[in-house]
Amino acid sequence: MATAKMHVKKNDMVVITTGKDSGKSGKVQRVFPEKGRLIIEGLNMVKRHTRPRPGQSEGGIVEKEAAIQAANVMLVCPACSKPTRTGKRFLDDGSKVRFCKKCNEIVDK
């Protein structure tokens, strides 16, 4: 299976548009482009029941972040601070960057 094109990257600020955490924003911790999913810091929390294992922590109920579909989040533009769609643009030096479709500013540093 081919890897999906992701509109968000690690350390981007995003806002969740659908689901139980809709309207909340957070920072992207990990991106899985082959699955089209990502993990957002402190959001989409699930509970996992873990067994005690020798040499590791004790067992119990652990709360951790679960992956969310990349299509269910929108990038928050650093310039205008609004959730926005992004486009791709080539600069004069040939590099490809993302830009905000609302304020037309470059998102990548």
Score class of each variant (00 low, 15 high):
Gly60Val: 07
Leu91Ala: 08
Asp93Pro: 04
Phe90Ser: 13
Asn11Arg: 06
Val15Thr: 14
Lys35Cys: 01
Lys88Asp: 06
Lys24Gly: 00
Gly60Lys: 07
Gly42Gln: 04
Gln56Phe: 15
Ala71Pro: 00
Val14Tyr: 04
Met74Lys: 13
Gly23Phe: 13
Ala79Phe: 10
Lys9Pro: 00
Val62Arg: 14
Thr17Arg: 12
Arg98Gly: 06
Phe90Arg: 11
Val46Arg: 13
Asn72Glu: 14
Ile16Met: 09
Val62Trp: 13
Lys96Pro: 00
Thr50Gln: 12
Cys100Glu: 08
Cys80Pro: 08
Lys27Phe: 00
Cys100Tyr: 05
Val76Met: 06
Phe32Gly: 00
Lys101Gly: 01
Ile39Asp: 01
Cys103Glu: 11
Asp12Pro: 02
Lys9Thr: 02
Leu38Phe: 02
His49Arg: 11
Val73Met: 02
Gly26Ser: 03
Gln29Asp: 07
Gln29Arg: 11
Cys80Gln: 10
Met13Ile: 15
Thr17Leu: 12
Arg51Asn: 12
Ile39Leu: 07
Ser81Trp: 04
Met13Lys: 13
Arg89Trp: 05
Val62Met: 13
Gly36His: 01
Arg51Ser: 11
Asp93Cys: 09
Ala67Leu: 05
Lys35Glu: 13
Cys77Glu: 06
Arg51Asp: 10
Asn72Gln: 06
Ile68Cys: 03
Asn104Glu: 11
Val97Cys: 03
Lys96Tyr: 00
Thr86Val: 15
Ser57Met: 09
Asn44Tyr: 05
Val28Ile: 12
Thr17Met: 15
Val8Met: 02
Ile40Asp: 01
Gly42Asp: 05
Gly94Leu: 07
Gln56Trp: 13
Ile16Ala: 04
Thr17Glu: 14
Glu63Leu: 03
Asp21Tyr: 14
Lys24Asn: 08
Asp92Asn: 12
Val62Glu: 13
Lys27Thr: 14
Ile61Lys: 11
Arg85Asp: 11
Pro33Ser: 03
Lys9Glu: 09
Phe32Cys: 00
Leu43Thr: 03
Met74Ser: 11
Cys80Met: 09
Ile68Met: 07
Gly94His: 04
Phe32Val: 04
Pro33Met: 05
Phe90Lys: 15
Gly87Arg: 07
Thr17Gly: 13
Val8Tyr: 01
Leu38Met: 11
Lys64Gln: 14
Arg48Trp: 10
Pro54Ala: 11
Val31Ile: 14
Gly60Ser: 07
Glu63Val: 13
Gly94Arg: 09
Cys103Trp: 08
Val28Met: 04
Val28Gly: 01
Lys9Ala: 14
Gly94Asp: 08
Gly42Lys: 13
Lys82Tyr: 08
Ala67Trp: 03
Val31Phe: 02
Arg53Lys: 15
Ile61Ala: 08
Asn11His: 09
Ile68Lys: 03
Gly60Thr: 05
Asn104Pro: 00
Glu58Gln: 10
Arg37Leu: 14
Asp93Met: 06
Gly94Trp: 02
Ile61His: 07
Ala79Glu: 14
Cys103Ala: 12
Val46Gly: 09
Ser25Asn: 12
Arg98Ala: 05
Pro52Ile: 06
Met45Gln: 15
Thr84Ser: 11
Gly87Lys: 09
Asp93Arg: 05
